[in-house]
């Protein structure tokens, strides 16, 4: 990466540096221009009244719903948040959140996916978009909407038309080779969560191997290790979301 394009810790894009000096142009060079190194070429997250939408995907049983519950506990007091679930059994995940008392019923919407959890978050996102819109219409402005996918396989990813950022959750009990296998969820998710680290000694999973493989697959994208048994507030994930919400500013 060109040093001008390095992103500082915290994710905010640098403004043009006072020390930045464009390279000199010789007399033989055809006329050309350079992009402003202080301008992020990527499309910015949409500003305005819409809530930040974070997709949470991952294989069946990796702990997506438990992570959503933990995030509701951690962030429910400080952010106006709502959850859309895509479990194949429409009310299962919503019931889990209700039973655990982490979110009132009116802040949860369940979406049916017709046996195709990946279709509902990637190819035809209409039911999920409608659910998000309905939540915002009922509850007023929100800061954060978590969209939890139904359990799927390693190829499942969220459409950018539905979410702003996505988290992919795998667990150590699925085998320490999962990060090495890759797939779009592992390689391209904005945050990879390797969950249930407390089980590692019981299932013979080597966290160092998972860490190394994740780094290899994901380059500079972040990976966090998590045990919801030991950290019921999912601290590193909650912190990652806090920074994202902070960058966007409050909803209108």
């Amino acid at each position: 990466m060109h040093p001008d394009h390095a992103t500082p810790a915290g994710g905010a894009w640098p403004r043009p540096s006072e020390n930045y000096v464009p390279h000199a142009h010789g007399p033989d060079e055809p006329p050309h221009t350079h992009p402003d190194p202080g301008v992020d070429p990527h499309q910015a997250l949409a500003a305005g009244p819409r809530a930040l939408r974070v997709g949470i995907g991952g294989p069946v049983g990796s702990g997506k719903t438990a992570l959503v519950a933990a995030l509701c506990r951690a962030l429910g007091e400080e952010l106006r948040l709502a959850v859309v679930t895509n479990d194949i059994y429409t009310t299962e995940d919503a019931d889990f959140l209700l039973r655990n008392g982490v979110l009132p019923a009116e802040r949860i919407r369940a979406v049916e996916t017709g046996c195709c959890p990946h279709t509902a978050i990637r190819d035809d996102i209409s039911a999920n978009l409608d659910a998000v819109e309905d939540l915002e219409a009922t509850l007023g402005p929100l800061d954060l909407v978590l969209v939890e996918s139904g359990g799927d396989n390693l190829t499942a990813t969220f459409s950018k038309g539905l979410i702003d950022r996505q988290i992919f959750v795998v667990d150590v009990a699925g085998g320490d080779k999962v990060p090495r296998k890759g797939g779009p969820g592992v390689t391209a998710a904005d945050l990879l969560v390797i969950n249930k680290t407390d089980l590692a000694p019981l299932v013979g999973a080597d966290l160092a191997v998972m860490d190394r493989d994740a780094k290899e697959r994901r380059g500079e994208l972040p990976t966090v290790f998590l045990s919801l048994v030991e950290d019921r507030a999912a601290t590193p994930v909650a912190e990652w979301i806090r920074i994202l919400v902070g960058v966007r500013g409050p909803a209108g």
Partner: peptide, 11 residues
């Protein structure tokens, strides 16, 4: 049938 118009979720 691939038109993203919500049809896949209805039987």
């Amino acid at each position: 049938g691939r038109l993203p118009a919500g049809g896949h979720a209805h039987s």
